[in-house]
Design a protein around this nucleic acid. Structure first.
Lengths: 252, 252
DNA sequence: CCCTTGACTTTGGGATCCCAAAAACTCTCA
DNA sequence: TGAGAGTTTTTGGGATCCCAAAGTCAAGGG
């Protein structure tokens, strides 16, 4: 939360992701000024940010056009992010001072395990899980020795499902027993993968760490694809509302 | 080259990379306005861009501080870029319509091979080589089916040595026969790697394509490290001047 | 009736102005 | 003489103004 333009960019981005504007719609600065009751200066700064993020395109002539991300975009970005994280896992496993990252990772794994064993998944539990997941993943990125991996991940982390350690929860997880079972299994599987990654890093097994991290992100891709297969007309907006309520940022 | 602010950002970035400003130096908007004879509006837009690129940091209070990249930063970024390109190579090898990318790649390999056989390396030859190299690498990124790989690569391509298909040439390649031999060998090796990547993609051997692309970028890392080992006090500015004259952008 | 051209309107880029906050300087008191 | 408080100056953020370019509409000619 720096200045108005960053917040403004976040609000416009949220609007775009949540489907307030149609794909390819032209939006003007004046219109946004009117909508958010600010001057054109911060609006232009925000639009430049969004342009760099790729969700708004500045045409040759005048006007900005919306480039709202599709589910395919999300899947592609998740793949890129997963690949970058697998690099981080490999580098951390090769790093001589990888011990520094291990305690936080172990605690995160333990926390997630405890939360899954609660057999309950309301907003606060989801929030805690998300938080622990974030700790696990950022520990790897921050300690891998290559600052650009984490930096590059942050560059694409504005997309939904791509914030550090974001988890997708099945909204219908409480509807039916089998959905609940599947959801719990998925969480346990994910944490088992965390455990493997932890052990591989601890033992300096770079290949195993990289491979398991790749598999870990692939699991998320497959999970999103199940939604896509269930309902072909699914939009990113639906996908966002599938994520945990606890992941919603605090509104001002 | 869109509007003034993009060009302004490029000029300030070049100044930072070429070491005009000292590391950690505070630069003010007014100062830049005076230096480039423009108003504060485009300066602020440019600074926001540079802030996002990570080479300028906006402090808590006022003032921007220079975060000029070190050689270590470049090496890390090359590693990230190489890892992303290896993902692209794997995806392209797995892609059913990978045939579309092959002709341009083959032509690029042939061009580079011909240029190496010229046994001559002046500015135009280097420029052509750079261009062909760019064709090879962007063909893979553009056709791999995951648009975010190329997009993410572009996000970090403002750093020296990280523009698409940029090559580092040994400035002293003409000084001594053995340096020349080593330089030619390196170029031949690089193109042989191109050839292997091409064949692996053609045959759908995703593992080989990914592995060889990884090795290809590793070769560049090792090459930069030889400079670093030769002279510990080497700066990024020196590294930039080591790249081909043909890579310099046309000044207005 | 359609095409072309010219005037009008909309809109984005740049410059300038104003203000608030932070840094720096100075004055005073211990 | 040093430390603290008040004042001044610097500086960045936001708002507003102006202008140029692009889009739009209408009128006239073929």
């Amino acid at each position: 939360m720096n200045s108005i333009d960053a917040e403004l960019a976040a609000r416009i981005r949220d609007d775009i992701i949540h489907g307030v504007y149609a794909e390819g719609e032209r939006l003007s600065e004046a219109q946004l000024c009117d909508a958010f009751k600010v001057s054109r200066t911060p609006v232009r700064l925000a639009l430049r940010l969004l342009e760099r993020e790729g969700i708004v395109r500045r045409g040759e002539g005048r006007g900005y056009t919306i480039q709202s991300p599709s589910i395919s975009d999300i899947l592609q970005a998740v793949q890129v992010r997963g690949h970058l994280e697998s690099l981080a896992a490999r580098l951390l496993a090769q790093s001589p001072n990888r011990q520094a990252a291990l305690p936080a990772m172990a605690r995160a794994i333990e926390t997630i395990g405890d939360l899954v064993n609660l057999e309950r998944l309301d907003a606060p539990v989801a929030r805690q899980m998300q938080s622990a997941n974030e700790v696990f993943h950022t520990s790897i990125l921050d300690n891998c020795g290559n600052d650009y991996v984490g930096f590059t991940c942050q560059q694409i982390s504005h997309l939904p499902m791509l914030a550090a350690g974001s988890m997708v929860f099945d909204r219908g997880i409480l509807d039916s027993p089998e959905r609940w079972e599947a959801g719990v299994f998925r969480l346990r599987l994910g944490n088992a993968q965390h455990q493997v990654i932890y052990e591989a890093i601890e033992q300096g097994d770079a290949v195993r760490a990289e491979g398991m991290m790749r598999e870990h992100s692939h699991t998320m891709i497959k999970y999103i694809q199940t939604f896509e297969n269930r309902d072909r007309s699914l939009t990113v907006s639906d996908l966002v509302s599938y994520s945990a309520a606890g992941s919603d940022r605090v509104q001002s």
